Amino acid sequence: MNRAFFEQLSAAARDVIAREIAAGLVGENKALAGFDPVTAADRAAERELRALIERAYPDHGISGEEFPTVRPDARLRWSLDPVDGTRALLCGLPSWAILVGLIEDGHHIAGMIDLPAIDETLIAVDGTTWRNGAPVRTSGCTELAAARFSTTDPFLFSGDEARAVKRVRRSVRLTRFGLDAMAYARIATGGIDLAVENSLHPHDYDALIPVVRGAGGHIGDWSGGSAFDGGRVVAAATRELYEAAVALLA
């Protein structure tokens, strides 16, 4: 897989989303409880991404947030989140992203975090992550006391999870909230060192895994593995920092 195809996916999805934004976005609630918005931009972008993949790779599987999975048993499968951070998009914030991951026999081999609002595209292929055509690396931070930490929403944690994340937050240098997938882009480019989330779906993290790893970072679950049970994700600039965070989360 080469960067050019991801760039094609980025350009097509950006164009569709821009048209929907210009037409005026309305957030429909797809949750039975609470508010989980979806817009015409989410659906239109996923349709466009699927169409491009179908034309280029008709034997590949495709799964996404908005539409059913096709060819789930294919050796190669694309994972799509056409607008990660729909709440941010509806609020006019720049942290929303187009996420595309490619998985081969269960292994995350390529991915893209595209940030249209700031015209930044991170693409991971062949074990290297590129930002707008230039390779990037994490900060190399190994100690919690020096780490810059992010989680999208502290109110998503409760009970033991909330206490665990509080232990991490009290151990780091600084904390920023509300960045969605942008936090993982910043881990890859060295601006943030550590991110912790829960309740993520595969389409939320499939693209993040190769991007963080391709920049020299480490990403896994709260128990030190890669099962991601309950959507619990920890991404860090280094394996040492990841293990230090996991020790507190456990």
Rank of each mutant, 00 (worst) to 15 (best):
V83Q: 02
V83K: 05
G85H: 08
T86Y: 15
A88R: 15
C91I: 05
G92S: 12
P94A: 12
S95D: 14
W96R: 11
W96N: 09
A97K: 06
I98T: 06
L99I: 02
V100N: 00
G101R: 04
G101M: 04
L102K: 03
I103H: 07
E104Y: 12
H108W: 13
H108Y: 14
I109L: 13
A110V: 05
A110L: 06
G111L: 03
G111E: 00
I113H: 04
D114Q: 07
D114F: 04
L115T: 08
P116M: 01
I118N: 09
E120L: 09
E120Y: 04
I123H: 09
I123Y: 06
V125T: 14
T129P: 14
T129F: 11
R131P: 10
N132P: 13
V136W: 06
V136H: 06
R137Y: 11
R137I: 12
G140W: 01
G140K: 07
C141N: 10
E143K: 14
A145Y: 09
A146S: 14
A146Y: 10
A146W: 07
F149Q: 05
T151Q: 10
T152C: 12
D153I: 01
P154C: 08
F155N: 15
F157D: 02
D160V: 10
D160H: 13
E161A: 08
A164L: 01
K166S: 08
K166W: 03
R167K: 13
R169K: 14
S171F: 14
L174M: 12
T175K: 10
R176F: 11
L179Y: 05
D180A: 15
D180T: 15
A181W: 05
M182R: 14
Y184A: 02
I187Y: 01
I187R: 00
G190P: 07
G191D: 15
I192F: 10
I192D: 12
L194N: 03
V196N: 02
S199M: 11
L200C: 05
H203G: 00
H203M: 06
D204Y: 06
I209D: 03
I209A: 03
P210I: 07
V211W: 00
V212G: 11
